[in-house]
């Protein structure tokens, strides 16, 4: 074996690291790849032993997706609930973050931490009363009910995230607007929103992702009329007959938009998911 020059050994090292990284990445992504692949199989192919990597692809699972599973009903519920509670959350979070970033008091930090601590309340701790309250108020299996819950569970994260973005805006800009006679509402709408729109957009994305994928309250508080995609997919856990290709197609469609959102906004999400601690 001949001696490697330093340059060669560096290059070899890069190739090895790259190869290993690719292997790990492909292994981690494999379940998603396999799900997408299965969604193009017939039910017979999907159940074949051993599992087939090569097969005649079919679109039948997608073509008949609505007739077979009422997909669009559930997808629409997911859309309405996610966007509804994101809107409500932003309406609450932006003013709160505005206050905390620009009218900071001695209490601000403890209020922020307290908000974070409400996330520590395990949902099962309040499942029973929420269930009974919803039953009495007629909110069980309604989109409104889930919008209320999702808004509240995501509010701390949203406040925290918008706060970290607002915190980076120089106070002078607000002072200037104030001297021009801007009211607080005008300050938010005309000054903060345009400057902070990148941060606000990623807050919106994070909220959409969290709402779209939430699967404790949606499973416990909905039956069919307000059930979002998470609950619909769960109903496949005890189905009859061959269904794996169908399940894969439904799952692929249910996950695709969020997966793309996530890819597009990974950098900004880090800040929101870590409550501003990692940037």
């Amino acid at each position: 074996m001949s001696m490697l020059t330093l340059k060669q050994s560096r290059r070899l090292q890069t190739v090895l690291i790259g190869g290993l990284a690719w292997l790990v990445a492909l292994a981690i992504f494999f379940p998603i790849f396999w799900m997408i692949l299965t969604s193009f199989k017939t039910e017979i192919d999907a159940f074949a032993t051993p599992p087939q990597l090569f097969f005649t692809p079919t679109l039948e699972n997608y073509v008949h997706i609505d007739a077979r599973s009422d997909y669009f009903h559930f997808a629409w519920n997911s859309v309405v609930i996610s966007f509804g509670s994101t809107l409500a959350g932003m309406l609450l979070a932006v003013p709160a973050a505005y206050s905390m970033a620009f009218f900071e008091t001695k209490r601000t930090k403890s209020t922020l931490l307290w908000m974070l601590s409400t996330k520590m309340l395990p949902p099962v701790g309040v499942l029973v009363p929420i269930y009974l309250l919803f039953k009495d108020a007629g909110l069980l299996d309604t989109k409104t009910g889930l919008v209320i819950i999702y808004t509240l569970i995501n509010l701390p994260i949203m406040v925290w995230m918008v706060y970290t973005y607002f915190k980076e805006i120089p106070k002078d800009i607000l002072e200037a607007a104030r001297l021009d006679g801007a009211t607080p509402a005008q300050e938010i709408v005309r000054v903060l929103l345009p400057i902070g729109k990148g941060g606000l957009a990623s807050t919106v994305l994070l909220s959409l992702i969290l709402c779209w994928n939430e699967a404790f309250w949606s499973l416990n508080l909905t039956a069919s009329s307000a059930a979002p995609l998470t609950a619909m997919v769960a109903s496949y856990s005890s189905p009859e007959g061959l269904f794996w290709a169908k399940l894969s197609a439904v799952s692929t469609l249910a996950c695709a938009p969020i997966l793309i959102f996530g890819w597009l906004s990974q950098k900004q999400l880090v800040r929101g998911l870590s409550f501003g601690a990692v940037k």
Partner: peptide, 17 residues
Amino acid sequence: VLLISPFFIMPTVSALV
């Protein structure tokens, strides 16, 4: 992108897949 993808899959989907 491949590495972080599973985080965005809804829990019911990952469980059933």
